[in-house]
Simulated scan of single mutants.
Amino acid sequence: MIEPLHNSRDEFELWLSSMDDTIELFISRQSSHIQRDLDFSPMSLDIVESIILDSYSNTTAMLDLSQSYAVNELACYVGETFRKNLNWKWDLRTDDPAFVFYGIPILVNRDSSGDPECPLSLTTAAADRRKGHYLRTILHNIMKD
């Protein structure tokens, strides 16, 4: 299972600072034809979702500890795509252990309005929903609000 960052702001900052490298590694592992289309556009989320559906039969398979690096790469790409299209920012809530995304990186609106989104949760939910356009639909729905 993917471990939350708990109370460590330093771990979160390190995770953020390595995100570009993480995403670059994820993209480099794809075929050149797929690499070309991983441009952080809403449509690129369908490509990522197809990778998820081809790689994982369900959410449980994604949460296996052996998959933590691969799932982190997917979640980083999904998160950056949401962040760039919504102009949101990354955050980490460690003030309330009852918070549903406690210790897990989330995206929040810069003006603090609306609900946060958790790219890790969205990524694993895509394996469960098995739609092929789940991630893009969520992004479009937020963009409409």
Rank of each mutant, 00 (worst) to 15 (best):
R83H: 08
P4C: 02
F40H: 15
K131C: 11
A126Y: 02
R129A: 14
A126L: 03
T124S: 05
A98W: 01
K144H: 12
L92I: 04
R83M: 09
L63S: 06
D91K: 12
D21Y: 13
T59C: 05
V100R: 00
N72S: 04
Y134N: 11
L135N: 01
I106E: 00
V108G: 04
I52A: 02
N141G: 04
T123L: 14
E24F: 08
N85W: 07
L16G: 03
N85T: 03
N109E: 09
H6Y: 12
T94D: 08
D39E: 12
F40S: 06
A61L: 02
M1C: 12
D96F: 00
E49T: 03
E24C: 10
G132L: 04
H33K: 05
T94W: 02
R36M: 15
F82L: 11
S28D: 13
H33P: 01
F99T: 00
R29A: 05
Y69H: 08
D111H: 06
L92M: 07
D39I: 07
I34M: 11
A125L: 12
R29N: 11
A70N: 08
D95I: 04
W15V: 02
L74T: 00
S50R: 10
L38D: 06
K131N: 10
L38N: 07
E11I: 03
T22D: 06
I27C: 14
A98S: 05
N87Y: 07
I51C: 01
D10M: 14
D111A: 02
D64E: 10
S17C: 03
H140I: 12
A125G: 03
L16Q: 09
R36E: 15
N72V: 01
S68R: 10
P97I: 00
N109W: 09
Q30M: 10
I52C: 03
H33Q: 06
S31R: 14
D20S: 13
L65W: 12
D46E: 13
D64F: 08
D37E: 15
E49H: 06
D111R: 06
R29F: 09
P4M: 02
Q35M: 13
I52D: 00
A127M: 09
A70K: 03
L107N: 01
A61N: 05
N87S: 10
S66Q: 07
F40G: 10
S8H: 06
D21I: 09
L74P: 00
E80Y: 05
M1W: 14
H6M: 07
D115R: 07
E117Q: 10
E13G: 07
L25G: 03
R136E: 06
R36K: 14
S28K: 15
I2L: 15
R130W: 12
I2T: 13
S32E: 15
E3I: 05
P105K: 05
M1K: 13
H133L: 13
E24A: 13
T59G: 04
L107C: 01
M1Y: 11
S57D: 13
Y69S: 11
V78D: 00
S17W: 05
D46A: 11
S55F: 06
